[in-house]
Design a protein around this nucleic acid. Structure first.
Length: 597
RNA sequence: CCGCCUGUAGCUCAAUGGAUAGAGCAGUGCUCUUCUAAGGCAUUGAUGUAGGUUCGAUUCCUACCAGGCGGACCA
């Protein structure tokens, strides 16, 4: 419908010599301004040296010559807006399509395109905290949205299962722990984190002492950790490799439980697990990266390490600071492994194009604190000819922090996700135990998905599990309510129907609120497309809030399911269309609608 | 010191350069013999500061102020 209108409008303005690219068709905020609006007259008035309203009149006159049948009326308002009102037939048709069961795919704009979404990516042997929660929730929603737009989506959990921190952990285990006992005991992951924290506490304690001998012991501990990691990376000591594997295993079991609770899934690879960083540290993955960089002459020696420069040798002309590819001790670093990962992804899912012919987009849903790093990484991959600008995307988000400062695993200043979920379930249980788990997850997810801001979030229990007002549970509740209406209607033998005549549209009852609701339902597809194109689930969240408000204000005023009510069939029809759309929208946010609340 | 991000109501958030800046929470006053009140109605209240571009600026540009995050061997 929107496309048809857009085409007709473009044809009209082209007749007047206006560039088609200046045509924008929007949804007005105010319902009095119609179903669609365009500012094309105001945008072009100056160029054509014309009063915007006069130009608008000319456009409308031209538009009327070939007016689509779905448009009832066109009007000019304010400084020169052209507003379009849809015919009720067209509105009814859309509602009927929803009732008939809309197709699984909302749009085919992603047809034939592949996109890999990397999200969650927790660190092994570290807690799964609120911090990882954001990436998990937002990334999962983006994957759902792109999938419904027809993209072929690969959901990738890039586990942090490699790096210097394992050296520290292995040293701590050796000195103070017993991995066998930890593995079989209660809460193994918390024990591992305790050991990791203890390592840092110990280093801090020794460093802050006045005794030089103790201070050197602290340095010794750090050195030992680095050495342990080197041995792990070399793979020469089976006992160390085994210990690492046990840590990975302990963590994976814990993560699986959390993903289960959150209803988040990944595309499994290499058996049942996801591919983490450790998959990309072997020479067959790293060497091609080094070779590619070398062949483009991008790799330079600097201060003992191998780095990529962005903009020559003069620091004043650098676009970004240099990116280290190989540490001075020859070990890999995150950038090396990320490049290897992206090369692997290109080879596995896409293709390295000669002329921008690659057909894979990679999205990293990672915190905003890594923005600079991703710019460096993307720039490097662009210089390598692996990707074009739009092929690499960093979807970033602000961090959860405490009022007093940031969260820190090392200092033990964290909030475990388990505790958050449990607390939310406890709160939801007070109202209805049966739906508590679904409601708790909805509250937590929606709290993340409603935001677009990159600002940090100050952690607050009440805010996090908000279940009133603009919240996940409010949307669930609206949907459950609508379904209750349908149940009752079914019991009374009322069949959902728009009107009484053959066309259904012109003969349907006139209820202003429901007409508004139906017209708002028309926006659904555009909203999803826009959310997908900008990787912003919050656009859907906002839309659903508005949609629910429209329904609820109607709901409270009119009692629907009365057999004698001649308008009952229509009311039930719109209610059902609302419920279906709401459920679909919530699904894109990863929120389930419980049967009862 | 440099770079990036963010400043909207008491609080948490909205607003593809558009029309009267929207919600929720909190406050105030209503509203349940009803399809579950986790609801609805009404009401109070805001664009950090100073310029600029534009027919039109919360949005774009410049400067400043405030907060956050980064800035070569952590990820």
């Amino acid at each position: 419908m929107k496309n048809e209108l857009s085409a007709a409008l473009i044809r009209a303005v082209s007749e007047l010599g206006i560039d088609a690219s200046s045509v924008a068709l929007d949804f007005p905020e105010n319902a009095e301004h119609g179903d669609f609006t365009t500012n094309v007259a105001m945008v072009n008035a100056k160029k054509l040296d014309m009063n915007p309203r006069v130009l608008a009149e000319k456009i409308v006159a031209e538009f009327d010559k070939n007016k689509p049948s779905s448009i009832k009326s066109v009007s000019i308002a304010g400084p020169g807006f052209i507003n379009f009102v849809l015919d009720v037939e067209a509105v009814s048709k859309n509602t009927q399509e929803i009732l008939a069961g809309a197709p699984t795919k909302i749009s085919d704009i992603g047809q034939g395109k592949k996109v890999l979404v990397e999200y969650s990516s927790p660190n092994i042997a570290k807690p799964f905290t609120v911090g990882h929660l954001r990436s998990t929730i937002i990334g999962d929603s983006i994957a759902r949205i792109l999938s419904t737009l027809g993209y072929s989506v690969i959901r990738d959990n890039h586990l942090g299962d490699w790096g210097t921190q394992f050296g520290k952990l292995l040293v701590a285990i050796e000195k103070w722990g017993n991995l066998g006992l930890i593995e079989k005991g209660e809460d193994p992951i918390k024990k591992l984190v305790d050991l990791y924290v203890k390592f840092h506490d110990e280093v801090d304690r020794l460093e802050n002492s006045n005794d030089d001998k103790l201070k050197s012991e602290a340095a010794e501990l750090e050195k030992l950790a680095r050495a342990k990691f080197q041995i792990l990376e070399a793979g020469s000591d089976q006992k160390i490799v085994d210990a690492w594997k046990i840590c990975v295993d302990i963590s994976m079991k814990e993560f699986a439980k959390i993903y289960q609770r959150l209803g988040v899934a990944f595309d499994p690879k290499r058996g049942d697990t996801q591919i983490g960083e450790s998959f990309f540290v072997t020479p067959d993955k790293i060497e091609p990266v080094i070779e590619a960089l070398d062949s483009k002459k991008l790799l330079k020696k600097s201060e003992g390490a191998k780095v990529v420069f962005f903009g020559g040798d003069d620091p004043k002309k650098w676009k970004y600071p240099p990116l280290i590819i190989e540490k001075s001790d020859g070990a890999s670093i995150y950038a090396t492994r990320d490049l290897a990962a992206d090369l692997y992804r290109l080879n596995t899912y896409g293709s390295v194009g000669q002329n921008g012919g690659q057909n894979l987009t990679i999205i990293n849903e990672v915190g905003a604190e890594q923005s600079l790093y991703f710019r460096q990484l993307f720039e490097t991959e662009k210089m390598l000819g692996w990707f074009t600008d739009s092929g690499r995307v960093h979807v970033s988000h602000g961090l959860y922090r405490f009022k007093e400062g940031r969260m820190s695993t090392r200092k033990g200043k964290i909030i475990w996700l388990d505790d958050i979920l449990d607390e939310a379930v406890a709160r939801a249980s007070k109202i209805n135990a049966e739906s508590a788990e679904d409601v708790a997850v909805a509250a937590i997810k929606f709290n993340d998905l409603k935001r677009d801001s990159l600002q940090d979030i100050v952690f607050d229990w009440d805010e996090m599990m908000n279940m009133a007002g603009d919240s996940g549970p409010y949307l669930q509740y609206s949907c459950v309510r609508a379904k209750a209406v349908m149940e009752k209607a079914k019991g009374l033998g009322i069949v959902a129907r728009i009107g009484s005549g053959p066309g259904e549209g012109s003969t349907r009852p006139k209820i202003a609120q429901l007409d508004l609701l139906e017209r708002y339902l028309l926006r659904f597809q555009s909203i999803i497309e826009f959310a997908g194109a900008s990787y912003k689930p919050n656009i859907i969240a906002n839309y659903l809030i508005n949609l629910a408000a429209l329904f609820n204000s109607f709901y409270s005023q009119v009692i629907i399911a009365d057999v004698k009510d001649p308008e009952a069939a229509y009311k039930v029809a719109v209610t059902q269309a609302f419920a279906k759309t709401m459920e679909r929208g919530l699904d894109l946010l990863g929120i389930k609608v419980p049967k009862k609340m």
